[in-house]
Nucleic acid binder design. Structure first.
Lengths: 192, 192
DNA sequence: AAAAAGCATTGACCTATGTCAATGGAAATC
DNA sequence: GATTTCCATTGACATAGGTCAATGCTTTTT
């Protein structure tokens, strides 16, 4: 239990066995079946979830009922509605499982206590959020400056595993395109 | 010197006078004239800059020579090419001054030493990056799910000061639109 | 095994945004 | 104060992407 979580932790900040045990007390394992929600829009987000196994997505739903995928998370990734988690405001995103999944949950109180008592946890958190920030900035840059064709190509190059595991219309949603448009973009690319 | 920097620091993490003096040793003031570069694409990003006065932008330039603004930074904000700063890779963004500006710079070595020696600096850094992450996620969400008209309206509501100070074509660039399109969007909005 | 649901593709058509060029005014520079 | 540069706007036209509807295939459910 929590194997991958600690593996990931140790590659960023090295822990002793005692520290691992100390942190483990604050962690909750959770299994989620495909399509089950971890979080629904309007509820406060109570957890940060680390994916041990499976795949999840966070997404918003607009007035017309269209879903817009904000983030995918597969093994080794973290997912949450961070704004809601930090402020206790109602979540603006939904999070659900794309595949049957196993998670390591960190509750808000656990998160706060760990930050106060374990400097290494704060470092781990800082490195995680920094990495997420840099990744998101790259995504933003490509959205405002690249053609959809190039964006799909680079998504394929960076996340081939996600392309394999996730239905194409979700990739389209993540890219801010309709499924039809992504289908046509792909068709155009085959030629070359 | 560094007044605003410490004011901002203290609202996030309270410092003693001694700690302020300790940190101040690592800070460098810098003035930048309008249009001067703080960073040019290709150079390694050596600083994180806190804006004491003035306004800056970071932007990328695509193959066609079009500029795409990634971020604005006015008084109290921080700007950098974080990926380049952390990895020493060549910067992919340019940063320049939109107005004559005064900055507080933190060099890479200063940043590293402060993180190692001052837990409060790590907390400050973590809170900053977390806030920046949440803000950027909101921007991303609105780009992939809102009409340009709504996006401009909400940009106006959130950053009225930037709209006042920055030429409209830069707002367009930030929104991923051409100046012509933003001009038309605005025209359509006047009616209502 | 049969039925239902989910998914990718395609066509016809529509809308938003981009491109290019011209204009006039404002601001910066000399 | 004159000149130049920068900037926002507008028109005509081109293109990317969205919408709606139909089809056939695959996966899931019963």
């Amino acid at each position: 239990m929590h194997e991958l979580f600690f593996e990931s932790f140790n590659t960023k900040v090295q822990l002793t066995k005692e520290e691992e045990l100390q942190i483990a007390k604050y962690l909750t394992p959770k299994k989620l079946r495909k399509k089950q929600y971890l979080l629904q829009e309007g509820d406060p987000c109570k957890y940060v979830a680390f994916v041990e196994k499976g795949a999840l997505r966070s997404y918003s739903v607009d007035e017309k009922g269209n879903e817009h995928i904000i983030q995918f998370a597969i093994e080794g990734w973290t997912i949450s509605d961070l704004y809601s988690f930090l402020t206790d405001e109602p979540a603006t995103y939904n999070i659900d499982a794309i595949e049957d999944s196993e998670l390591t949950l960190i509750s808000k109180t656990a998160h706060e206590e760990l930050l106060l008592t374990m400097p290494k946890f704060e470092t781990f958190t800082r490195l995680n959020i920094t990495g997420a920030y840099v990744a998101m900035q790259k995504r933003l840059t490509s959205i405002i400056s690249s053609l959809s064709e190039d964006r799909y190509e680079s998504f394929n190059a960076i996340y081939p595993d996600i392309v394999q595991r996730v239905p194409q219309h979700m990739i389209a949603s993540y890219m801010g395109l309709t499924p039809e448009t992504l289908s046509r973009v792909r068709k155009k690319m085959v030629g070359r």
